[in-house]
Structure formats: structure tokens, C-alpha cells
């Protein structure tokens, strides 16, 4: 192929999301991106696994929210990772639970995320497996090759590693600036900027 591809590698939306054309997003109508989120090639998001039982809400007139995967701002999904909502039996009926991800979440290459919720400023390393319905709070660092068991709750400011994963330390005082993903966001896309040194 001699001709340059006419289209860029990424689709950039009005809200600043950068979605690779080679990413596999299934059921996009159920995927919410907060803006300024980067989705690299070969990422797979299963939006089709939506909640099959409507949540019992007090406001009966509200329209059913079918979001399967909600992602906040400045999230970074590296190459080859998979995001899929986890399922469980709820009141005797099998249903998928939505996967919620807050702002500034980094997901390393080759990781598989089946969590229920992920807080903000979370760093998930490479080849990590987050088990079904795990809850990860804010400012958590999960090291490479960890396996977070199903239903685990990881408190804020923990460093987690191992197979199965356990809390091995705490994020040091002042260490939370390292979780900012604004600069990383600028380094990818159709006209990437070099990372500030």
C-alpha cells in the first residue's frame, strides 16, 4: 500500500473522545463515554450485555437507563483490553450489572475488566484480570499481572498486586499526582503531541 490512508487511525468526537477505528465496541447504544477518553486499537467493550431486569427505582416515570458500560473523563483504555459487565443472579433472575468507571482511569494492555465499579484516578497495569463485580475505590494502583478475585472491594489509596491480588501497600502522601491522565491524553490521536518531559 503506497497511498496514505485518507482517514486517521482514531475517530475524534466533539467531546474529545478518541476512539480507534480498530476497536471493537459491541452495542454502542449502551456505552457512555464521558469525554476526553482514549480507546486504543483492539480494545473490546461489551455494551450489548445490558441489564435485563429494570432496576427498582422510586421514580417510576423515569425512562429505563440501559447503560451497560459508563466511562468518565480522561480514561485511557490501552491496546487489547476488554471491558465487559459482569452478570449475576439478582432476585432469582440472571442479569448483567452495569460497569461504571469514573474519571482518570488507566487500563493497561491486555487487561480484562469485569468489575462493578471503578473509582477515579485508578491505575490498572498490564495483563490484569479484574474479577466479576469487584469494586475499586479511588486512587488505587493495581500492578501488572495481578488477578483481582471476584467480589473484592479495594479501598482507596491502596496498592494491589499478586495472584490472587491483595493489598500490599498504600499510595504515599503526595503520590496521587501520578494518576493524572491529562498529559497522556494529548500523546495519542490523529495528531499526537509529544509528552512533556
Amino acid at each position: 500500500m503506497s497511498r496514505r490512508p485518507p482517514k486517521g487511525e482514531y475517530i475524534e468526537t466533539d467531546t474529545g473522545n478518541k476512539v480507534a477505528r480498530k476497536a471493537t465496541l459491541v452495542g454502542t447504544q449502551n456505552i457512555m463515554l464521558g469525554g476526553k477518553t482514549v480507546i486504543q486499537p483492539e480494545v473490546m467493550i461489551r455494551g450489548d450485555l445490558a441489564r435485563s431486569v429494570p432496576p427498582t427505582s422510586s421514580s417510576g416515570g423515569a425512562p429505563a437507563n440501559n447503560t451497560a458500560v459508563a466511562i468518565g473523563r480522561y480514561c485511557f483504555l490501552s491496546r487489547g483490553c476488554v471491558l465487559r459487565p459482569a452478570g449475576r443472579l439478582y432476585k432469582g433472575v440472571f442479569t448483567y450489572m452495569p460497569l461504571r468507571m469514573n474519571d482518570h482511569v488507566f487500563v493497561g494492555p491486555g487487561s480484562v475488566i469485569q468489575a462493578a465499579s471503578i473509582g477515579s484516578h485508578v491505575h490498572i497495569g498490564a495483563r490484569v484480570v479484574v474479577g466479576e463485580l469487584a469494586i475499586i475505590k479511588d486512587y488505587v494502583r493495581i500492578l501488572d499481572d495481578s488477578i483481582v478475585p471476584p467480589n473484592m472491594v479495594i479501598p482507596s489509596f491502596s496498592i494491589v498486586a499478586g495472584q490472587p491480588a491483595r493489598v500490599i501497600g498504600e499510595v504515599p502522601e503526595g503520590g496521587h499526582e501520578a494518576f493524572e491522565l491529562r498529559d497522556l491524553y494529548k500523546t495519542v490521536g490523529n495528531n499526537p503531541q509529544p509528552a512533556p518531559s
Partner: peptide, 10 residues
């Protein structure tokens, strides 16, 4: 119904 289509590379 949403007009957005799933982008699934071939």
C-alpha cells in the same frame, strides 16, 4: 432508537 451504529471492524 439510537442512530448510532456499532463500530465493529471487519
Amino acid at each position: 432508537m439510537s442512530k448510532r451504529h456499532s463500530i465493529v471492524p471487519p
